[in-house]
Design a protein around this nucleic acid. Structure first.
Length: 116
DNA sequence: TGGTTGACGACAT
DNA sequence: CATGTCGCCAACC
């Protein structure tokens, strides 16, 4: 049985368009569990096919390191393949962050408290 | 049931 | 800017 949180996380991540990214904390907030950023990572680890897991990065705009190091490189390649540019190993979140329909640019800085 | 483990994040140093 | 701590939550054992 997949938990309710995982189902909501998968449903949300499926909405992230090509060439855009979201952070673990952002996803957590958007599904109503602002403190579960870490659990979102666990969810991505075992997400079903069809979920663009590679479009989820950490709050620094970087690809999180796996315990065994696998997968991190492919995630970056997938993103670059969608036009997401990395500068010194990081993505400019102000530029690529998907804001769930909000007018891009209206939210320079991501503010979790505005999502409630 | 209870302790450990991370694809995390906010803060302090 | 680079670490280290600590809180959180679901998954595992």
């Amino acid at each position: 049985m997949t938990s309710a949180l995982r189902r909501r996380v998968n449903a949300l991540v499926r909405r992230v368009p090509r060439g855009r990214v979201v952070t673990y904390g952002q996803v957590a907030a958007l599904v109503g569990a602002p403190r579960a950023a870490r659990a979102v990572g666990q969810a991505m680890r075992v997400c079903p096919a069809g979920v663009p897991w590679h479009r989820v990065v950490n709050g620094q705009g970087a690809v999180s390191r796996r315990g065994d190091g696998s997968g991190a490189l492919s995630q970056r390649l997938l993103l670059e393949g969608e036009g997401v540019r990395f500068v010194r190993g990081r993505i400019d979140l102000d530029r690529y962050r998907w804001t769930a329909g909000r007018r891009p640019g209206a939210t320079r800085r991501f503010r979790p408290e505005l999502l409630a």
